[in-house]
Nucleic acid binder design. Structure first.
Length: 921
RNA sequence: GGGGACAUAGCUCAGUUGGUUAGAGCACCUGUCUUACAAACAGGGGGUCAGAAGUUCGAGUCUUCUUGUCCCCACCA
């Protein structure tokens, strides 16, 4: 079924087609109504299964599901606007396109928001209990999920709402369990006791990607550890940024070759404050020239020390509890329960009292922070679940190396490969309550540990036992996100939907989740479906404030899309976001920028008003094929054809900014500045009874205008849909029920003639030069209607048609334009300008003193001669003639000829001006 | 330390196999309420393309270095 055959049977969304458009577009008058119309028409819903009867596969884009932590910000607004642009474009082009909407439960981020909320209410999460806490989180999700969906509609996103998926709903949860169980049974998920990133505030392990390293100005402290059996005052001085971890020290290490410490090899030192004895070990890891050359080894609280500890079989002493306070048998009584930062000061103070503190130096170093809670991460030894990544990473790297998957901009490839080639296993367990519960069970009878697809397993696979305990932890939120290319389509059940929508065509997302999300989706799809989830990944720009700082809640520098919509309208938001978004990199955005979009909408609104006005007098609109097209008409249509061609080319390569600039130029300049203005003049020149010619004008301008609406619709859907409804249909542009499902203009449907376009451009240049002379020399306005203008054409275009000269005359607002042959002499007392292709003279007589023009003309001649000099030098160079391509040489020769002609003509004019000046004196 | 960039008009940025005299939007200046649009129209001014060297007949574009800014990854206690 083609779109065009769905002829209008539903009521129009518009109150009245003949109603005058208001003077100023007010988006609030129509945006809500239009969106309702789209929804009622179900225009964005995709019927799956259609394509298997011979239609092409469905063009699909997966929306990166926004977190339900809070409402959307302009970062979403900008990134999603681009997606909606592309999906609307494809829908109009192909007849079907699916944008799959979703919401992400955002495990840790949402849990934190709920905890904060509880804290504000004075409720502790533990007193509330797990079940009630999850209920609170669900309420949070309902509230913000609802708000987000409202925002989507307000911005005009054309998602297929019937396919809305949520990472924590039943189907998606089943997919998560299925994936987990499969990987578990294959041995790709395992449990391991090792050092993890611990967030003492949220009291959970974090993935490496949830840790943010910040440069901090701190101190490096020098602590003296007395040597066992040594003289009083004999000690080794260690350098550390974390004195409070000394109770967990298991050794001090020096470099084996460090001559300063040879005598201590094999000896022991006494840990101050606890009097525990620890060995002096040697390890190449120690840098002799850093600090004191003596390193304290604290395996339980430092990743590097951990490795040293493992190498030397030292064991580890954990001295911190889950909240980050000191605790344990090795911690002296007075330090028990003291927070790590308070303990730092206490240790320094105590050592000072003992004379074992040797001072401190300011020290800049990087400190890991939780990107969630913002507190300092504590490395902690504990058991967590991991996914073995090496196999996944290899595959994901290979597909990119072999060019099966590509990035826009492509430089992300290196980042991708570097990460995958150095990948660490993925820690997927979190000590949280909000998320997918880990489907691992322990049989209480035999102790067997197994993963289960069932909500509640019935019997132990090993001993038939019937009571089990489930792992209390939940999965990393990305463990559901990485299934996103599959889970919205019924996976893992055998599903036709999957055939329809998997793989999708392109992923459009922010570059900062390339590892967490993009890479892992690639891995999951390759693993579970043996296919890439998408072959192209387009990274949108990051939205920042004017200073280049990323929008953030804490800084309060963000822009709320709803504020933008209230002040400027959704179309202005979308247009502006697309217009200022660079290719990659960052968008520096401020509220004022949305005037760009607002102005454009204003412009297209008024163009429509004008054309609607023309339609009032003429009911008959001819097909284009039946019209004889004059220069501006064919010129405009050709420009339209170029625009269609270039836009398509840009969009295919995700060059959205170039595409939008092309469209902007067409609408504002080609259509409004030149097309409509020429159309007005044509109407004025035609006699009242020349109805046929007027109908031809109308046909062309209406066609060019409706194509503009169609071309712009994916970017500014509301205003174009609204205007489209007011304008009469053009016979060459069949209409569907709505603009959003009408056909996108295609090159083959637009008459074009490059030679005529060239001529129309030449005429525009001539008109601009004449206007320039009038204004630069401040000719009195009263004289305009009687000005004589002389025109020489050197380009290969003929101006025999009086209508064309008349059009120049009218658009340039002069009295009359006379055509001269290139050999003729320009009249005396005139102002001259031109290019290589033409020359114009505005005869001014004694209106103004032309001595200034004499000076300007001589400067012009000089400039042209300079240019000629350069060209001649090129042509005299044998190297140039020998090595430059033939077309370049030909062009250069042609250029030389044109320059010579121009200079000749200018000199002639110069002479006559001089004579006129003399004569006038 | 490793990697990725960026540096073009006052501001934000285009400039995709090197090829006429480098463009746009905003801002600025001048004129105009010309019956779609003053949120507009018409016109104008403004850039030794960060600096240096090299490759080339020819460099904003390619190579190297220098300077300045940003991002990512890793991390020395």
């Amino acid at each position: 079924m083609t779109i065009e055959s769905k002829q209008s049977s539903s009521p129009s969304p518009h109150p009245s087609k003949v109603a005058e458009l208001s003077h100023f577009p007010n988006p609030q008058d129509y945006e809500g109504r239009i969106y309702q119309f789209w929804q009622d028409g179900e225009f964005f819903q995709v019927t799956s299964g259609d394509h298997r009867q011979g239609s092409p596969p469905i063009y699909t884009i997966l929306m990166p599901p926004p977190n339900v932590t809070s409402q959307l910000h302009m970062g979403h607004g900008a990134g999603y606007s681009i997606q909606d642009w592309l999906i609307r474009w494809r829908r109009m082009k192909d007849g079907q396109a699916a944008w799959i909407p979703g919401l992400d439960h955002a495990g840790i981020a949402t849990q934190m928001m709920v905890e904060k909320q509880l804290q504000a209410e004075g409720i502790s999460k533990h007193s509330l209990g797990r079940d009630l806490f999850v209920k609170r989180a669900q309420q949070w999700k309902e509230k913000y999920g609802h708000e987000i969906l409202n925002q989507f509609r307000a911005i005009g996103f054309s998602c297929d709402w019937s396919r809305l998926a949520y990472t924590l709903d039943n189907k998606r949860s089943y997919a998560v369990r299925y994936a987990f169980v499969q990987l578990f049974n294959e041995g790709l998920i395992y449990r391991s006791h090792r050092l993890v990133n611990w967030d003492p505030s949220l009291q959970t392990a974090l993935g490496d990607d949830e840790v943010e390293n910040r440069m901090v100005s701190g101190h490096i402290f020098y602590l003296r550890y007395p040597v066992k059996g040594g003289d009083a005052g004999q000690w080794l001085t260690v350098a550390t940024t974390r004195p409070e971890t000394m109770f967990g020290d298991v050794a001090v290490a020096v470099h084996p070759d460090d001559e300063r410490f040879q005598q201590y090899h094999g000896k022991k030192v006494i840990l101050p404050l606890t009097h525990r004895e620890i060995p002096v070990i040697t390890d190449n890891y120690v840098k002799q020239d850093f600090g004191t050359g003596v390193l304290k080894i604290t395996p339980a609280h430092d990743p590097n020390d951990y490795l040293v500890g493992v190498r030397h079989g030292l064991g580890a002493i954990d001295i911190l509890n889950d909240q980050g306070a000191l605790q344990g048998d090795d911690v002296p009584k007075s330090f028990q329960g003291v927070d790590r930062f308070a303990a730092r000061k206490m240790v320094v103070k105590s050592l000072k009292e003992l004379g074992l503190f040797q001072g401190s130096d300011p020290h800049k170093h990087s400190v890991p922070y939780s990107s969630r809670s913002g507190v300092v991460i504590e490395p902690k030894l504990c058991a967590q679940w991991y996914v073995k990544m090496s196999g996944f990473a290899k595959q994901a790297a290979t597909v990119v190396r072999q060019g099966e998957m590509s990035f826009y901009p492509e430089n992300w490839q290196k980042t991708w490969l570097y990460w995958l080639d150095n990948i660490q296993d993925w820690c997927i367990s979190r000590q949280l309550w909000w998320g997918h519960r880990i489907p691992v069970w322990t049989c209480e009878n035999c102790g067997h540990v197994f993963a289960s697809l069932e909500d509640q397993p019935h019997r132990c696979p090993k001993c038939d036992g019937q009571t089990f305990s489930q792992d209390p932890d939940v999965l990393d939120t990305w463990f559901s996100s990485w299934l996103w290319p599959l889970s919205p389509f019924g996976w893992p059940d055998d599903s036709n939907e999957l055939d329809d929508f998997f793989p999708s065509q392109v992923l459009i997302t922010a570059p900062d989740i390339i590892f967490q999300w993009v890479a892992r989706m690639t891995m999951a799809s390759l693993k579970f479906q043996k296919k890439l989830p998408f072959k192209k990944v387009f990274f949108v720009a990051t939205v920042c404030d004017k200073k280049g700082q990323k929008f953030s809640k804490t800084l309060g520098n963000g822009i709320d899309p709803m504020d933008v919509i209230a002040e400027y309208g959704a179309d202005a938001l979308r247009f502006t976001a697309a217009f200022i978004a660079p290719q990659g990199g960052r968008i520096k955005m401020s509220m004022d920028d949305f005037n760009i979009g607002k102005n454009f909408i204003h412009k297209i609104w008024h163009a429509s008003r004008f054309i609607l006005g023309l339609c009032d007098n003429t009911s008959n609109i001819k097909p284009l094929a039946s019209t004889t097209k004059n220069v501006w008409q064919l010129g405009l249509l050709t420009e339209l054809a170029y625009t269609i061609d270039k836009t398509e080319d840009c969009l295919n390569n995700f060059q959205t900014q170039a595409a939008l600039r092309t469209l902007y130029h067409y609408v504002w300049h080609a259509l409004c500045d030149w097309g409509i203005e020429a159309c007005k003049e044509s109407f004025r020149m035609l006699s009242a009874d020349d109805q046929e010619k007027k109908e031809e004008c109308l046909s062309v301008i209406l066609f060019a205008h409706e194509c503009a609406l169609r071309l712009m619709h994916p970017v500014i859907p509301f205003v174009t849909e609204e205007l489209w409804g007011h304008l009469p249909a053009h016979p060459d542009l069949p209409r569907a029920k709505a603009l959003c499902v009408s056909k996108y203009p295609s090159l083959t449907e637009v008459p074009s003639e490059p030679r005529v376009h060239e001529k129309w451009t030449l005429m525009q240049n001539i008109i601009q030069k004449i206007r320039r002379l009038k204004q630069v020399y401040s000719l009195p306005k009263q004289s305009y209607a009687t000005l004589n203008v002389y025109l020489k054409i050197m380009a290969n275009h003929r101006f025999e048609d009086q209508e064309e000269l008349a059009l120049i005359t009218r658009l340039a607002q002069v009295g009359i334009v006379h055509l001269l042959s290139p050999q003729d002499t320009m009249p005396a007392k005139s102002l001259i300008d031109g290019t290589l292709y033409f020359e114009v003279a505005v005869e001014v007589g004694d209106l103004i003193d032309i001595s200034a023009e004499v000076t300007r003309l001589s400067a012009q001649i000089k400039q042209a001669q300079g240019h000629l000099g350069g060209v001649e030098k090129k042509l005299q160079s044998e190297a140039f003639l020998a090595r430059a391509s033939e077309s370049v040489v030909t062009n250069t020769k042609k250029q030389k000829q044109q320059l010579l002609e121009k200079i000749g003509s200018l000199e002639k004019t110069y002479e006559s001006l001089l004579n006129a000046q003399d004569g006038g004196l």
